[in-house]
Design a protein around this nucleic acid. Structure first.
Lengths: 145, 145
DNA sequence: ACATAATCAGATTATTTTATCTGATTAAAC
DNA sequence: GTTTAATCAGATAAAATAATCTGATTATGT
């Protein structure tokens, strides 16, 4: 199957969005809660949350009533940063068409269009993004009940 | 690592581009030649070429002096078709952000932007694409000598 | 202090993707 | 007709990704 992002990255983005939505009240959320609400494996998302914490995207608090919370304000946060934190820069070095040495200076046929889109799409965590995610999440929770 | 396309798909696109570049003379090219020129595994690309043949993207000729050639004129060919032939439609059903039930009617925050780009980027096999690939391929061959 | 609930770290397993191998079939060239 | 060079089909192996397990550490709350 063609893949856009790795699962790891998808889960990471979703977790960050969830923390963003729940930011009011500086909410700390456990890995278990996050996994439950997103319906993704707890142990896996734990690892991802750890990586995000190491990279300063989120803050982690150990011990009882510990958990994770946003380290930056949503306004400063880029989805791009999340991708970079989890999967590193390789994605942006790897050519969509698999051309060797594809770069800004020596672009493959779709290089420019592609990198432009990636940047535009993930540059900012827009209010629209957050709002829509909030709706989706709520819907998901509703559908469980 | 984040991935845009699977290797399978990358190789398939490259193979089709190569056949397009070499189309003049209705050229038939063996899997071995294609693998050699693109510097990708022969057995793997053979499988991919078979799938492309089954899906009518390319034509395959068995036996001695057999091989593969384009089944459509480059003007009719879409890179999108190649992707669909190799990896199926799942890529376009799967949400970039991993949202369940993401679709045109119930889009995730980046759904519209994303599908627009995908379509635009791969809709047509443009002259520009072919020309650039020709240069790349020639460069690659030069660098081997 | 102690029980509890969480992160964290490392090892292991499962699944998927990528790549390779073997042999059968096909058709052209001699 | 025989040799040869190719596709084709199915099985297998290797590598990468995804998921799980186990236990240690940490800090909170009682």
């Amino acid at each position: 199957m063609s893949i856009i992002f790795s699962r790891k990255c998808e889960y990471g983005i979703q977790a960050v969005l969830l923390l963003t939505v729940e930011e009011e009240g500086g909410g700390v959320h456990s890995a278990e809660e996050i996994a439950g609400r997103l319906k993704i494996p707890k142990e896996f998302v734990s690892k991802i949350l750890q990586e995000l914490a190491v990279n300063g995207i989120i803050y982690s608090k150990k011990g009882k009533s510990g958990g994770f919370s946003l380290a930056k304000s949503p306004k400063e946060l880029k989805l791009l940063d999340v991708v970079l934190a989890i999967d590193g820069p390789e994605m942006f070095n790897r050519c969509v068409l698999g051309f060797p040495n594809c770069s800004d200076k020596s672009p493959c046929p779709v290089h420019h269009k592609w990198s432009q889109l990636i940047t535009q799409t993930f540059e900012m965590l827009s209010d629209e993004t957050i709002d829509q995610f909030k709706q989706k999440t709520l819907n998901k929770i509703e559908s469980i009940k």
